[in-house]
Amino acid sequence: MSNNLNDLLKLLLDHNIDFLLVGGMAAILYGASQITHDVDVCMVVRPDQVETLRRCLAPYHPVHRETPQKFSFLEIPQETSHLKNIYLQTDLGGLDILGEIAGVGNYENVLKNCIAVELYGHRCKLIGLEDLIKTKETLNRDKDKATLRELRVILDRQKNPKN
């Protein structure tokens, strides 16, 4: 098993899954020097998207990370119309699929201020920097405090390029 978050991200992009990149990987793309162990995405968790996710993740043995039995995502749940958040562990690393982002709201809300970047030959939607900062402020977790300060510096540099 080899952790490779970049391959996990590429996989989602290659399969044209409609998602917004949020969390630690978004912070890294903005220039933060933190280390993250998973890929966090915000999306509308529709049954057709779940089917595409199952198809593309199948070779990487996705399981529900937070269940002690580590149930396979390929089989459970059978009914997918009510899903909001999915926390997976795959052979490539962790994948958190979130229907809502703290301090910002659902996919539509995050979409409003997102930016699109070119990554691995695809167009990747990235949560807006101010929204990313808002999320980290709302969550108020100790582990985010350094990243939060670094993101504020990066935002300040964007707003005042001469600094």
Binding site: N4, L5, I28, L29, A32, S33, E118, L119, Y120, V153
Partner: peptide, 20 residues
């Protein structure tokens, strides 16, 4: 931070994976 900002997006991801 300054060093990260001098890199391309894909270079930032590659460096992160190396560190991880």
């Amino acid at each position: 931070t300054n060093y990260n900002l001098s890199l391309s997006l894909e270079q930032r991801l590659t460096n992160h994976q190396r560190a991880l």
